[in-house]
Design a protein around this nucleic acid. Structure first.
Lengths: 367, 367
DNA sequence: CTGAAAGCGCTTACAG
DNA sequence: CTGAAAGCGCTTACAG
């Protein structure tokens, strides 16, 4: 292959734009034009250059492009060690989906872990290296300093999750948790459960309150408005406390009822509470969780799943066509499992009730 | 701040090495020397330049450094959408820990998702962009084409997980699963369980066979050599099959015995089998899982935890000082929970037996 | 110890 | 439509 035609002198070195130019008998600017403004190149030249590009396996050196264009075509994504160990790997999945979708937008993703003591400094430095043009934010919360800082410094960004502090900012995509819970209620009504309670987090968190409002909306849809306080309980994200809260709730609701939960952790508490009360999961009591985690899957608990891949694609779009002024709210889907199925249960000898439903089918419900 | 001293003309633009040079009244080469060979710069000059660097908040433009040094100081990490949904997010955690440790090695991490149809092409292209110098591999399996290709093309890499096909290649760090299971057996012996069985995967997979051998070694340690076939069962990574296999195994082992499992999924099967047999988890039957997933934590199952952060740090070291010829095998630790505690259980009325142990303490056992 | 020169691989106006 | 020129921000020998 290494002939007189001008293949790179050092074969181990990758082909450069100059190698292609020599091989195709054009200047290197023309090669660049073939790459970046093919419409400005005559057809025969175009073809010849492209053939050489293919033959040499030439891929532009992105680092050089970045420097020259003064644009990295890359975005930073913060990764957080403390986020691990807690149930639900939504952000891990989001990172993966962001990576998968990156090439479709001519971009790539750089992960970084800012010092927890000074997160903003981590963003500042990452930006200053020129390795990224902006950021994809996730896990935004009240009082989050990042959005304002990015705004102040004219740094492009998009957020996965509403930017609570800045109502005028529309560069976010989020999942409509309330709509998800509402679907869950509709599903449980349809499945034939009598009373449908809610096991949520203590009020005050925007996400939790949103999910709770979905429960109320679902009841209203079904003509079961105005539930009294007895039909809801709350617990922090802790299994023992969730179990205790669920026990209180189930005791008040009675058999034949169901519980929609603000998280799979809470749902697991409901599962245990049902078991402790001697109730079969599904037939005697329905449970729906949130986030469709491994735990929900393993225990065959119906759960509300966030459309993460779609969120990632939307994030890229917002980032790269920043004139779309509207935020996007995606609707989650229900993954239906045996915890919300009222089929009569087999004798309790050898088979565990909540193992029976092996049909892990997915179903999209619209409220 | 923008004075006559030569701060960047366009304030919105970040400071460059030239701005620092002007401000400190030296040439830009000297600034570069301050950054890269401080020993070659006179003390007063050094101090003056550094002061200006701090004042201007100058951070070198990494893209320019990459181009000039012909070195990205970055490594690629493949991310895989199909790896999700299955229990255990070891690789997600590895990615995070790799990112956390990156700055300590003057590097950063670029994630990419190669086309599943042609993974090698994804690696080739990523490398050709000049954005990375090499790769961190994970999830290596028999017949994996990546290590050989990287070797053939002189691309630096390290693998998290043994490179099974290339015994002469030592650039890997892995976790000694066998040693982990052995610890699990020792722990169960100490906890007072009578017979200790093994619930593993069908033989033939290197990882699974390794874990099984740890069980045998643990029994030998305890002077309980030569278990007969009745003390082991196998199942694929599926909950229903695992439950069935565990039921057969528990029936043969009898109460007061324990089961070490090759995964948390299998351990969950054992938990259900115990429950179906009316046995209390912990007091009546001990269970130890593998990987310390969310599911193990949620169900209070003792599990063997891989030291992922240490694996990540080791990977960086191997990558950046490639003369360390020896592979590294790390020993996992046991996270002890109530599923392997033989304390007498409270009455089975309101409290679920496997919820009692709220002490999620960690303990490092060495065989 | 400090500064002038060359160049990493590419792109972007700008002439011809 | 094609090519000569300039330059992105930095580093690395190499003279002084």
């Amino acid at each position: 292959m290494t002939g007189l035609t001008g293949v790179a002198a050092t074969p181990s070195t990758r082909a450069t734009i100059v190698d292609v130019a020599r091989a195709a008998q054009v200047s290197r600017q023309t090669v660049s034009n073939v790459l970046n403004r093919p419409d400005k190149v005559a057809a025969p030249t175009l073809e010849r250059v492209r053939a050489e590009i293919a033959r040499l396996g030439f891929t532009p050196h992105v680092t050089a492009q970045q420097l020259r264009r003064r644009k990295a075509a890359a975005f930073g994504f913060e990764v957080n060690p403390s986020g691990h160990g807690k149930m639900g790997h939504i952000l891990d999945e989001f990172l993966v989906q962001l990576t998968v979708a990156a090439p479709d937008h001519g971009s790539h993703l750089m992960v970084f872990a800012p010092d927890a003591e000074d997160v903003i400094e981590g963003y500042r430095q990452t930006l200053a290296t020129g390795l990224v043009d902006g950021f994809v934010l996730a896990d935004t919360r009240r009082g989050d300093p990042r959005p304002q800082w990015l705004l102040d410094h004219d740094v492009p960004f998009v957020s996965f999750g509403r930017v609570w502090d800045l109502p005028d900012l529309h560069q976010w995509v989020d999942v409509d948790g309330g709509a998800g819970v509402r679907q869950g209620v509709a599903h449980l009504v349809e499945a034939g459960y009598d009373r449908i309670g809610f096991l949520g987090w203590p009020s005050g968190s925007p996400v939790g309150d949103d999910r709770r409002s979905g429960w109320l909306a679902g009841l209203a849809d079904a003509g079961r408005s105005d539930p009294d306080e007895a039909e809801a309980e709350e617990s922090v994200q802790d299994l023992d406390q969730a179990t205790a809260a669920a026990e209180r709730l189930l005791a008040r609701l009675g058999p034949g009822s169901a519980v929609v939960c603000a998280s799979d952790m809470l749902a697991l508490g409901a599962v245990r509470a049902a078991r402790n009360a001697g109730l079969a999961l599904g037939p005697d009591v329905g449970v729906v969780g949130f986030d469709d985690t491994d735990v929900a899957e393993a225990l065959s608990v119906t759960s509300i799943r966030q459309p993460i891949a779609e969120a990632a694609r939307t994030a890229w779009q917002m980032l790269l066509s920043p004139r779309s002024t509207e935020p996007v709210l995606l609707t989650p889907e229900l993954t239906v499992r045996s915890s919300s199925t009222r089929t009569p249960h087999p004798p309790r000898t050898a088979t565990d009730p909540d193992t029976t439903g092996t049909a892990h089918g997915r179903r999209k419900d619209t409220p």
